[in-house]
């Protein structure tokens, strides 16, 4: 359980430091179950910070969204650190970016939160539709969420609202942090991400039928890319014109190519925060692709992303005895 007072206290202390520019955390949204990312520049701003099971957004994305615009004459670069409130997966994303030399460890202050899983916004909005007033959700020790709506208290078993990726999360504790709030979560046995197994056993044609239906729907808004903390290329392969890897027209062929490309570029890098699937406006189960690759990579190369900043990237190294049963 995260002590809110403690969170605000620590945030205030960090933001008061001279070498910290701002801290990214969560605050209440504008209606219903909404939570929005908050930026604290001063200790007063930190008063708004909250943490609840509704805080699903992966804030690590803001470390790479930091804009470095061309400096005006006489202007000096602001080299102060950025603080981020990180859950287990968010912290792994940061580790992964550091590993790839996309960020420097010394440019960041990480406030770690041992995570007990977050609520899937789509699920809770379906269970309690049309809530205009802001609603708080608390988790009790009994694996239940306590939801207070209009004076009435609802108790919902955790499993019903928990995000699918959280159910199979193996790393709820941040591997990298400067301050850790509360005590580390005990890692209990996790469910396997079972959806992949079901599809894996089906014949090729059924697999294609399944994915065809999903990919046909894709509107190629690239929200999955923008929301992903690990999609931070200066120029995405999808945007280059020469060579043009995929065409901009929206049809099955290009949509499939885009989705393969996105998933593949996250091979050995995806940290399973589920953000891509959460933002997808047309409900494509993107995490199934990511999880499939994650499992393959684990099985074939015994590699897990985002745990050690010193480790080399998956595709930047090899072992002489990597599996090669598929080679003729």
């Amino acid at each position: 359980m995260v002590d809110l007072k403690n969170l605000i206290e620590i945030t205030k202390k960090i933001i008061s430091r001279e070498d910290v520019k701002y801290i990214v955390g969560y605050k209440k949204g504008t209606y219903g179950f909404q939570i929005m990312p908050a930026f604290a520049y001063t200790p007063e701003d930190a008063e708004e910070f909250i943490y609840s099971p509704l805080c699903s957004k992966n804030l690590a994305v803001y470390t790479i969204l930091e804009e470095k615009l061309p400096l005006k004459r006489g202007e000096e670069e602001d080299k102060r650190k950025i603080g981020v409130v990180v859950k287990g997966c968010d912290s792994r994303a940061v580790v992964q970016i550091i590993q790839e030399k996309g960020l420097k460890r010394e440019d960041l202050v990480l406030i770690g939160i041992p995570c007990r899983g977050v609520i899937e916004p789509k699920k809770i909005e379906k269970m309690f539709p049309n809530q205009t007033d802001l609603i708080e959700v608390i988790e009790n020790d009994n694996s239940e969420y306590i939801i207070n709506i209009g004076g009435k208290t609802h108790k919902v078993p955790k499993n019903e609202l928990l995000s699918d990726v959280c159910k199979s999360c193996e790393f709820p504790n941040p591997p990298l942090y400067d301050v850790l709030l509360g005590e580390e979560v005990e890692i209990t046995e996790t469910e396997e991400f079972s959806k992949i197994n079901e599809l894996d056993e089906k014949p090729t044609e059924d697999k294609w039928e399944y994915w065809k239906e999903h990919f046909e729907r894709c509107i190629r808004c690239y929200a999955c890319r923008e929301a992903c903390p690990l999609c931070y290329c200066k120029e995405c392969m999808a945007d280059t014109l020469n060579p043009q890897w995929i065409r901009r027209s929206v049809n099955l062929s290009e949509n499939t190519a885009w989705n393969i490309m996105r998933a593949y570029h996250l091979a050995g890098r995806c940290i399973s925060c589920g953000e891509c699937e959460r933002v997808c406006p047309v409900n494509i189960p993107l995490m199934e692709l990511n999880k499939k690759i994650e499992r393959d990579v684990k099985k074939m190369f015994d590699y897990t992303s985002g745990l050690d900043e010193e480790e080399k990237p998956l595709f930047g190294m090899f072992k002489p005895d990597d599996p090669e049963d598929f080679i003729l």
């Binding site: 908050a38 803001y62 808004c221 923008e226 933002v279």
Partner: peptide
């Protein structure tokens, strides 16, 4: 202030 939290996903416009 608003743009700080925008991730530029473009869902709103699509």
């Amino acid at each position: 202030k608003t743009a700080m939290r925008c991730v530029g996903c473009g869902i709103c416009t699509f």
